[in-house]
C-alpha cells in the first residue's frame, strides 16, 4: 500500500450526549478515490469537517498530507480542497470572481486569474463564469464548488455527498469530473449513493453509528463480506412467485429473499448448499422460470449486511 494521504487515529467526536464518531481509525492511500459510505447520521460529515479543520475532535488525531489537522492550524488546510454537501457562495459574485477570490485566499496573487479560467474550463462553466452565482443551478454550483476546492491544486480533496442533491444529468457530470481528477489527487468522497461508489471509487470504508465497519478495495470487500446471491426471474403471475418466496425463505442456507418485480434475489449463507438445492426447488416451475443465475454481489448487498449486523450488535 502507498503512503497515506489521510490518517485518522482513534478519532472521536461527541456532541453533548451523542457519540458521532467512535475511535475511528482510517488510512486513505495517496492518489486513490476513496468512498466513505454510511447511512444518514453515520458520522460521515463529522469526519469530513474534522479533516477540513472546521470542528475539533473530542479525542484522537487526524492528519492530511502528513499535517496534523486542527482549526487552530492553517498548515493542513493548504493541503485540502473541501466541498460541503451544499456549497455556499456569495450570490453577488460571478463564478470567475469567486474562484479568483478563492485563489487569493490561497496566496496565488495575480496567478489567480489564470487558474480561475483554467478551472472554469475544467468544470464546463467557462461561459457561465461571467454570470452571478446567485443565478446558477444546483449542478452548476456543485461544479463551481469542486472548482473552488481545486484552486490551490490540493493533494487531498474532501467531497461531502457531492451528488446527493443533483438530478441524474448533474450527477453524471460531477461523477465524470471526479473520475477525471483521479490519479492526480486523493479524493475522499462521502456518500450514501452506492452506485456512485461502485462507479468511481478504488477503495471503500463503511461507517455506521460513528464506527468503522469495514475498509478495503471493492473486490476484497465483496470477497470478504458479501454473501453469495442468486437471482430467479419468473413469468409474471402472482401464485408461483409467492409460493416460491415462502419455500426459499424457509431454507436453512437462505439468509434473505427479496422480491423485486418478477425477480427474487436470494442471499445465501452457504453457496454449495444453495447451488445444490435451487435447481431442485425450481424444476417444478417449468416454463414459469425465465432465468436463474448466481450473480456478483453488489456493494449495496455488502453495505446492507454490514449496517444490519452493526445495528443488531448494538441492540
Amino acid at each position: 500500500m502507498s503512503a497515506s494521504a489521510i490518517s485518522c487515529q482513534e478519532l472521536t467526536r461527541r456532541f453533548d450526549h451523542h457519540l458521532a464518531l467512535d475511535s475511528l481509525c482510517l488510512e486513505v492511500p495517496e492518489h486513490s478515490v476513496f468512498g466513505f459510505l454510511g447511512p444518514n447520521g453515520a458520522g460521515k460529515t463529522t469526519t469530513i469537517k474534522i479533516l477540513a479543520g472546521l470542528i475539533r475532535p473530542t479525542a484522537g488525531k487526524a492528519y492530511v498530507a502528513g499535517q496534523r489537522v486542527s482549526p487552530d492550524d492553517i498548515a493542513a488546510r493548504r493541503a485540502v480542497g473541501y466541498l460541503p454537501e451544499e456549497p455556499a457562495f456569495y450570490g453577488w459574485m460571478t463564478g470567475r470572481e469567486y474562484l479568483i477570490y478563492a485563489g487569493r485566499l490561497l496566496g496565488l496573487g495575480a496567478g489567480a486569474h489564470g487558474r480561475a479560467d483554467e478551472l472554469l474550463q475544467l468544470v464546463d462553466l467557462a461561459e457561465a463564469g461571467a454570470r452571478r452565482v446567485g443565478g446558477y443551478s444546483r449542478g452548476m454550483r456543485q461544479r463551481l464548488g469542486i472548482a473552488s476546492a481545486l484552486v490551490g491544486r490540493p493533494p487531498v480533496l474532501l467531497l461531502d455527498e457531492p451528488t446527493s442533491a443533483l438530478d441524474p444529468l448533474g450527477r453524471r457530470d460531477v461523477l465524470a469530473l471526479i473520475e477525471r481528477l483521479s490519479g492526480d489527487t486523493t479524493v475522499f468522497l462521502s456518500t450514501h449513493i452506492l452506485a456512485d461508489v461502485d462507479r468511481i471509487c478504488d477503495r471503500v470504508a463503511v461507517i455506521s453509528r460513528g464506527r468503522l465497519l469495514a475498509e478495503a478495495d471493492q473486490e476484497t470487500l465483496r470477497a470478504r463480506f458479501a454473501a453469495p446471491a442468486f437471482e430467479i426471474e419468473l413469468a409474471p403471475a402472482p401464485g408461483p412467485a409467492a409460493d416460491l418466496l415462502k419455500t426459499l425463505a424457509a431454507q436453512p442456507w437462505a439468509a434473505s429473499v427479496e422480491p423485486v418485480d418478477n425477480t427474487l434475489r436470494v442471499m445465501a449463507t452457504d453457496t454449495d448448499s444453495a447451488r445444490r438445492a435451487l435447481p431442485v426447488l425450481l424444476a417444478p416451475l417449468g416454463e414459469q422460470l425465465l432465468r436463474y443465475e448466481q450473480v456478483r454481489p453488489t456493494l449495496e448487498d455488502i453495505f446492507a449486511r454490514l449496517v444490519e449486523q452493526s445495528e443488531e450488535e448494538t441492540l
Partner: peptide, 8 residues
C-alpha cells in the same frame, strides 16, 4: 465554512 476551510 467555505472560507475557513482555506488557510485563513
Amino acid at each position: 465554512a467555505m472560507v475557513l476551510a482555506r488557510p485563513v
